[in-house]
Amino acid sequence: MMPLTLLRNGEKGEIVDFIKKGKAIFCHLRDMGINVGKTVEVISNQSHGPILLKIDESRIAIGRGMAMKILVRRL
Protein backbone atom coordinates (compact mmCIF):
# COMPACT_ATOMS: atom_id res chain seq x y z
CA MET A 1 0.00 0.00 0.00
CA MET A 2 1.34 3.40 -0.94
CA PRO A 3 0.22 6.89 -1.87
CA LEU A 4 -0.95 7.33 -5.42
CA THR A 5 1.76 9.91 -6.04
CA LEU A 6 4.38 7.14 -6.04
CA LEU A 7 2.99 5.57 -9.19
CA ARG A 8 4.90 6.62 -12.28
CA ASN A 9 3.53 7.49 -15.68
CA GLY A 10 1.75 4.54 -17.23
CA GLU A 11 1.61 2.51 -14.01
CA LYS A 12 -1.63 1.13 -12.67
CA GLY A 13 -2.86 0.66 -9.18
CA GLU A 14 -5.92 -0.44 -7.31
CA ILE A 15 -7.39 2.03 -4.86
CA VAL A 16 -7.27 0.51 -1.41
CA ASP A 17 -8.13 3.28 1.00
CA PHE A 18 -8.28 7.00 1.64
CA ILE A 19 -6.59 8.84 4.46
CA LYS A 20 -9.81 10.43 5.54
CA LYS A 21 -9.35 14.07 6.10
CA GLY A 22 -12.02 16.49 5.03
CA LYS A 23 -14.63 13.87 4.31
CA ALA A 24 -16.78 15.84 1.88
CA ILE A 25 -14.05 16.08 -0.69
CA PHE A 26 -13.60 12.31 -0.64
CA CYS A 27 -17.30 11.83 -1.17
CA HIS A 28 -17.00 14.07 -4.19
CA LEU A 29 -14.07 12.04 -5.49
CA ARG A 30 -16.07 8.87 -4.95
CA ASP A 31 -18.98 10.34 -6.90
CA MET A 32 -16.58 11.11 -9.74
CA GLY A 33 -15.68 7.45 -9.85
CA ILE A 34 -12.54 7.39 -7.71
CA ASN A 35 -13.63 4.68 -5.37
CA VAL A 36 -12.07 1.90 -3.34
CA GLY A 37 -11.55 -1.16 -5.52
CA LYS A 38 -11.25 0.76 -8.78
CA THR A 39 -8.20 0.46 -10.96
CA VAL A 40 -6.51 3.70 -11.86
CA GLU A 41 -3.84 4.40 -14.41
CA VAL A 42 -1.47 7.31 -13.96
CA ILE A 43 -1.30 9.25 -17.20
CA SER A 44 0.79 12.14 -15.99
CA ASN A 45 2.80 12.45 -12.80
CA GLN A 46 5.56 15.00 -13.01
CA SER A 47 7.13 15.22 -9.57
CA HIS A 48 5.28 18.48 -9.02
CA GLY A 49 1.87 19.86 -9.92
CA PRO A 50 -1.33 17.86 -10.27
CA ILE A 51 -1.60 14.20 -11.23
CA LEU A 52 -3.69 12.99 -14.12
CA LEU A 53 -5.49 9.68 -13.65
CA LYS A 54 -7.49 7.52 -15.93
CA ILE A 55 -10.38 5.60 -14.44
CA ASP A 56 -12.49 3.62 -16.87
CA GLU A 57 -12.98 6.13 -19.65
CA SER A 58 -12.58 9.33 -17.64
CA ARG A 59 -9.47 11.38 -17.08
CA ILE A 60 -9.39 13.17 -13.78
CA ALA A 61 -6.77 15.65 -12.63
CA ILE A 62 -6.16 15.80 -8.88
CA GLY A 63 -3.96 18.13 -6.88
CA ARG A 64 -0.83 16.46 -5.53
CA GLY A 65 -1.74 16.97 -1.89
CA MET A 66 -5.03 15.19 -2.40
CA ALA A 67 -3.40 12.39 -4.38
CA MET A 68 -1.07 11.76 -1.42
CA LYS A 69 -4.11 10.80 0.60
CA ILE A 70 -5.26 8.15 -1.84
CA LEU A 71 -3.68 4.82 -1.05
CA VAL A 72 -3.16 2.29 -3.81
CA ARG A 73 -1.73 -1.15 -4.41
CA ARG A 74 0.54 -1.24 -7.44
CA LEU A 75 -0.69 -3.61 -10.12
Binding site: I25, H28, S58, R59, I60, A61, I62, G63, G65
Partner: peptide, 9 residues
Protein backbone atom coordinates in the same frame (compact mmCIF):
# COMPACT_ATOMS: atom_id res chain seq x y z
CA UNK B 1 -9.29 24.38 -2.58
CA UNK B 2 -8.17 21.00 -3.81
CA UNK B 3 -7.76 20.90 -7.55
CA UNK B 4 -10.06 18.28 -9.01
CA UNK B 5 -11.05 18.50 -12.60
CA UNK B 6 -12.21 16.08 -15.19
CA UNK B 7 -10.40 16.44 -18.50
CA UNK B 8 -12.92 15.63 -21.19
CA UNK B 9 -11.81 13.63 -24.22
Amino acid sequence: PVFIMELPP
